[in-house]
Design a protein around this nucleic acid. Sequence first.
RNA 1: ACCCCCGUAGCGCAAUUGGAUAGCGCAUCGGACUUCUAAUCCGGUUGUUGUGGGUUCAAAUCCCACCGGGGGUACCA
Length: 567
Amino acid sequence: MQSTVRDNIVELISAGMRLAQQAGALPAFEIPHTIPIAPSQHAAHGDYGSPVCMGLARVLRRAPMQIAQAIAPHIPQSEFVSQVEVSPPGYLNFTLDAGWLAQQVPVILAAGESWGNLERKESERVQVEFVSANPTGPLTVGAARNAVLGDALAAVLDAAGYAVEREYYVNDHGSKSRKLAVSIYLSYAELWGSPVELDEPIYPGDYIAELAQELQAEAGRRYLEMERDTALAEIMEWGIQRVLAGVAADLARLRIHFDSWRHERSFYTGEPSLFAQQLGRLRETGHIVEKDGALWFTHPDLEKDAVLVRSAAVIADPESRPTYLASDICYLWDKLVLRDFDRAIYVWGADHHGDAPRVKAAAQALGIAPERVEIILYQLVTMRRGEQALRMSKSSGEFVTLREVIDEVGADSIRYMLLTRTADVTMDFDLELAVEQSDRNPVFYVQYAHTRIAGVLRHAAEQGWPAEVLGDSALLTHPSELALLRKMVAFPEVIALAANNLAPHHLPNYASELAAHFHAFYHNCYIVDSDPAAVELTRARLMLARAAKVVLARVLYLMGMDAPERM
RNA sequence: ACCCCCGUAGCGCAAUUGGAUAGCGCAUCGGACUUCUAAUCCGGUUGUUGUGGGUUCAAAUCCCACCGGGGGUACCA
């Protein structure tokens, strides 16, 4: 449980401002509630710098430089900051104390798997809902970015102290489920040599035939002998279960596991159903209009009304009349009122961006604060194998499954590659490049750092060093050691950064920097030295290596990647 | 037509969310293996942040207009 260095420095600054005022060095002013601070980009500026005095210049009617000079002497002494400097045009620069940095080695080792975790937030229950692909077939590669983003987001929020639940929303209500059932049924009937004519749309993929074969093996001729609607209802149930089992298995290969699976269908069962209740609520608050035989959701924030229940003239089957929005509204209530999550995070592809305002408006209409609904929109990925683009649409019947791609390039590469860019940029994922085991593949660079430490520790063990070697970390004074330490100590901040901005791409960026600092340390500082005079230094460096391994393993874990002992 | 995302070094991307001299990888050029894995390291080269205005002490970041690329605008699911 760490507070971040950054936060601690912010505390120092506000204490400095308070004390400077008390001492009369500055006129009275209100201390800003947020104090800007960022890691310095140049060594000459120390480790952290704050431009807060620039913003104060106007209110205090003084030059930023003067304000900084008035505050700096009043900034309290602390064990982790060795130097506070003022630099033009008015920055406050902080240098971390080298001794304190070295002392963080045993701290990190003691924290182990909890290193980087932030203080538990009281009553901040967060749900991350992701993937949520229609249960009408295997996951396609199209689901990959969603899966990876959502899972890393959940992991990072968990580390940031939130109580996180991962949820998969199962769209099992309406015509697509029927379509799945019909598809399986027809294929199944054909297997028995008694083809059925049914004028309904079906899914064309090969997986339908496979499901039909399974059904044949499990149920024999049973479904041919019963009434068609009953058969279809049962097959639907069976098919969805079967597809979801496959989805879960595929996701498990990506090391993704859901805490709960919420079925859309449950919103329409019970008396009164959740849907009926929400409809009533919206009607009372004047958000429902009836037009052309359909029910529409209306809200001042929306450019136009959105259909909630389609008219009988357009959709014959009553079960298929409610739209996605109708279910989304039930789901909002389910998440944020019935289950009382503080925040609901949705992970959506950019192709659904148009739905965001409707869901937000619906939340408002239901009396749910819209800030509690957070929608991560990520841009789409085009997958290709060299020159060839991969299909990812289920309705075409020809598509590349997520499973194939996982088998081809491995879960680690997929996760790292898809995580490394901000959700805002479109991506081009080349499988040929992802499997390439070369310098062009950053995945190995990071994992190799971990492996390399494991190798050093094995070597040390062979030389007779105990596995849990302890020593005096104060001996760590080499620039490469300190640079590595700075990176390691920054880890809690990276978690805060990624969690606060719902931006997991900071993880791989950090991982790669951390690995780079380890590799440099490895080259510049020989770790296991057989010289008797270097015994103490060897102990200290082995400690540092172990601690670096802890941090690497942590960041790899948050990304859902393996931290290999050997490669 | 409207809405959303993107445009940063030859290429792919960062930039703690409005802060200092815009960073990293690949590519490229030159170095480093008798010692813990060279899947590594060290050094060099690389920029009018798409264009034009504006706001600000301070803009890649915010606002306006335009240009280019992607996505979206059904009583489809």
